[in-house]
């Protein structure tokens, strides 16, 4: 099957400026490659500053990539211009983390949803009917049509944002921590809606989150990011059952489990240090200063490649490949 989205060697460096001079680069995303297939959710997890959000935005060219290829439905997005870029804008959408700032406070729900539809010239017989139908599909109703965002709760706003995404009938949606600003009970609601919509319309999602539980619930396949690099990619179930990369193992042992019995039985791994700054990342494997298995002379010198250890399960670690 052809992937909807194929990212190859994506890099995004931000300049660090001091008095108009560039004194260094923040390597926010440094050589990331993955594919997303139709109807699939690809989860991207990592701690703050690992570059997962930048990856999501660079893929949509909200931030121009420094290097790399982004192939969307067979076309290289980095080369698109004019009409073709509009085509891309229509078929690839994003939903943001903060429901309080992602909707224009001066527009009614109707306008918020219809503006992109009109802009892309999508023919709609009865705009009102069309928007009501969309609102109903995300659990709102016609009473909300001509209201302003400030009249809604956080969860309801995320639903409006979702309806706006749906209106363009995209193939692919970047979900940038869509529930991390919400309470758990509301979160469950939104996650279920997202899943249902995926089943119905066959969307592909890039699901970005720092919450491993949520990523496991949502994703078919997932990638773990550390300091701008993917350290492990594979089917979500497999990664949770059998994490290969020491960082993934550390993450899994660090997440609190909402079950006292399992929590007591869980095998623990000592968590060392904090993520270093992406301005001057460690040489070699970026995880080596925190890694309990780091081998001097290898891990701190050479960068491990992403290798397929078992079927569809890739790891970038010298424990699993030869130099």
């Amino acid at each position: 099957m052809e992937p909807v989205l194929k990212v190859e060697g994506l890099r995004k460096y931000f300049p660090v400026k001091s008095l108009l001079r560039t004194i260094g680069w923040v390597k926010a995303v440094d050589g990331v490659s993955f594919e997303i297939y139709p109807g699939e959710t690809f989860g991207l997890v990592g701690e703050s500053g690992c570059g997962k959000t930048t990856t999501g935005r660079t893929i949509l060219r909200l931030i121009e990539p420094t290097e790399g290829k982004i192939v969307f439905n067979g076309k290289d997005v980095t080369q698109l211009k004019g009409r073709e870029m509009l085509w891309f804008r229509r078929h690839a959408q994003i939903m943001f983390q903060d429901p309080y700032s992602s909707l224009d406070p001066r527009q009614t729900v109707f306008n918020i949803i219809m503006e992109p539809v009109k802009f892309h010239g999508i023919e709609v017989d009865d705009p009102e009917e069309f928007v009501i139908r969309l609102l109903e599909s995300v659990g709102l109703n016609e009473m909300h049509l001509y209201r302003y965002p400030h009249e809604f709760s956080g969860g309801q706003r995320q639903r409006i944002a979702l309806a706006k995404v749906l209106a363009l009938q995209p193939d692919f949606v970047v979900l940038d921590e869509p529930t991390s600003a919400l309470d758990v009970s509301v979160q469950a609601n939104i996650l279920n809606t997202l899943k249902d919509l995926q089943k119905k319309h066959g969307f592909s999602y890039l699901f970005i989150s720092h919450d491993l539980g949520v990523v496991k619930y949502m994703s078919h396949r997932m990638g773990v990011m550390y300091l701008g690099k993917l350290v492990e990619v594979g089917p979500a179930e497999r990664i949770f059952d059998n994490p290969l990369h020491p960082y993934t193992q550390m993450l899994l042992s660090a997440i609190p489990i909402p079950d006292p019995e399992l929590a007591r039985k869980k095998k623990r791994m000592e968590v060392k240090g904090e993520p270093p700054s992406p301005i001057n990342p460690p040489s070699g494997c970026r995880f080596h200063p925190r890694c309990p298995f780091a081998k001097a002379g290898l891990c701190d010198k050479e960068e491990p490649p992403l290798v397929e250890v078992e079927k569809d399960h890739y790891v970038a670690c010298w424990l699993y490949g030869k130099a």
């Binding site: 909200l62 804008r89 959408q93 943001f96 992602s102 224009d104 503006e115 802009f119 892309h120 706006k164």
Partner: peptide
Amino acid sequence: LYVEAARAVGL
């Protein structure tokens, strides 16, 4: 974010 959302739509 609504500004970025508008850009993502292509406005």
